[in-house]
């Protein structure tokens, strides 16, 4: 599944990064617990989560961080490089409902000879609430070698 390669010349301030929809399930939370080593029970033990005044098991913030990482490595493509990724966990998300990662370019510049874009990114729930806002910086390839 090859993604489209974006070049520096293809994007302007306001450019919308192709959205990434994810459908987290309780099974994915268990897989993520195993792969990451984060075994905090609020992510897979419903009774434990309820006892901790949560509505049920909730997504690992780190999993949402990974989803937003995928948004940005998909955008950077094979020729780009994700330079910075920053996320803040503001709201909880539960498995069984889809979440969408989105972003837009807010600054375009050449940094030390490298074609660079800063992006505002976020993960939103099905009500459109941004539960996980953040920022990212990506170096993109240029069609013009002297850019």
């Amino acid at each position: 599944m090859a993604h489209k390669q974006f070049y520096f010349e293809d994007v302007e301030v306001g450019f919308e990064i192709p959205a990434l929809e994810k459908h987290p399930t309780t099974q994915q939370l268990v897989k993520y617990a195993g792969a990451s080593g984060d075994f905090y029970q609020i992510h897979y033990d419903k009774d434990f989560a309820l006892k901790n005044h949560l509505p049920g098991v909730i997504l690992h913030g780190a999993l949402k961080n990974a989803f937003l990482g995928q948004l940005m490595t998909d955008f950077a493509g094979d020729l780009g490089w994700l330079r910075k990724l920053s996320v803040q966990y503001r709201g909880m998300d539960q498995p069984g409902t889809p979440v969408v990662c989105k972003g837009k370019v807010v600054k375009k510049y050449v940094d030390n000879g490298k074609p660079t874009v800063d992006c505002e990114i976020w993960l939103e729930n099905s009500q459109g609430e941004k539960t996980t806002p953040g920022t990212a910086t990506v170096i993109l390839p240029s069609r013009n070698a002297t850019a």
């Binding site: 994915q28 792969a35 990451s36 990974a66 989803f67 990482g69 995928q70 490595t73 094979d78």
Partner: peptide, 23 residues
């Protein structure tokens, strides 16, 4: 396993064969 857990099918994280063609 990590790529599978986060649901990221990017060949760069999954397939040595395909990733060899990347930079």
């Amino acid at each position: 396993r990590f790529a599978e857990a986060i649901g990221d099918a990017n060949p760069a994280f999954n397939s040595e064969r395909e990733a060899r063609h990347t930079r």
